[in-house]
């Protein structure tokens, strides 16, 4: 694989997960369980959109075809999106939103720790900047996992169900393909094997502390690397992209 194509794909992968999760979180706006959480979720959604935008700008630059970050966000189809399957999963109840967030925050935390050392200076700088925010995100979602797991019977059962339902999408976070191989050789990409180990350790620790069980399901869904998503992404993009697609060429 050509280096430039690989780097472009890699940026899209990182950007899209941020963009899609931001979208999901913003769906909570005004409907959160308590005002403080409304504020927290919007704040996190804002961090994600900011980071996603920066990554898409870089992707556009790397691609060098004159596309803008908005073109990349609003004019790519379902099969061109590269976000993790986990982040496109619907919000469900607050337990599902928190479980999804915790699983992804833990991944991002360890992933970006490693990406800080990327030989690509832009990615390294973006990672260092994002890490400050991600540290807060992870603290927020971990604390809610603890509260729910070790809270009431109802909250325990809801968060356990959420982890059980989402577990099969976590393997996809760590799948590696030729994009990774190409960029690993140049010290740009992150080796996901050690990230996975750290992720497993931390997730196990927090779940254990929250009196929750690690789901025993071992079969993992994959596909995001090739743009094979769950059915949910199509609806999300239809909603997100409708204005620029209805009025092509309009400036907003």
């Amino acid at each position: 694989m050509e280096n430039q194509t690989a780097l472009f794909q890699y940026c899209l992968r990182l950007a899209d997960s941020n963009l899609i999760l931001s979208h999901r979180l913003s769906e909570w706006c005004g409907h959160g369980p308590i005002l403080e959480e409304d504020i927290a979720l919007i704040n996190i959604a804002l961090d994600f959109i900011g980071h996603g935008t920066a990554l898409l700008q870089y992707a556009a630059l790397v691609e060098g075809k004159g596309r803008s970050e908005d073109d990349l966000a609003y004019m790519r189809n379902e099969r061109e999106y590269r976000n993790a399957l986990l982040v496109e999963q619907p919000n469900g109840d607050y337990a599902k939103t928190i479980a999804r967030q915790f699983l992804f925050d833990t991944f991002q935390y360890h992933f970006y720790q490693a990406l800080q050392n990327s030989k690509d200076e832009t990615l390294a700088a973006l990672a260092a900047k994002a890490l400050k925010e991600i540290t807060y995100h992870l603290r927020h979602s971990s604390q809610w996992v603890l509260r729910m797991g070790d809270g009431t019977d109802e909250s325990h059962s809801r968060i356990q169900t959420a982890f059980d339902d989402l577990w099969m999408f976590t393997g996809d976070l760590f799948d590696m393909d030729t994009t990774d191989e190409t960029l690993l050789k140049q010290g740009i990409a992150v080796d996901l094997a050690p990230v996975k180990e750290k992720w497993q350790t931390q997730v196990s620790e927090v779940l254990q502390q929250a009196t929750l069980k690690i789901p025993d399901q071992t079969f993992m869904q994959g596909g995001s690397r090739d743009g094979r998503h769950t059915e949910h992404l199509g609806y999300l993009l239809a909603e997100m992209q409708y204005l620029p697609r209805t009025y092509p060429g309009a400036k907003w």
Binding site: P33, I34, E37, Y94, R147, G151, T152, E154, S155
Partner: peptide
């Protein structure tokens, strides 16, 4: 819908 969340906390 948020009641159980607040109760858990």
């Amino acid at each position: 819908n948020g009641r159980w969340v607040r109760e858990a906390a």
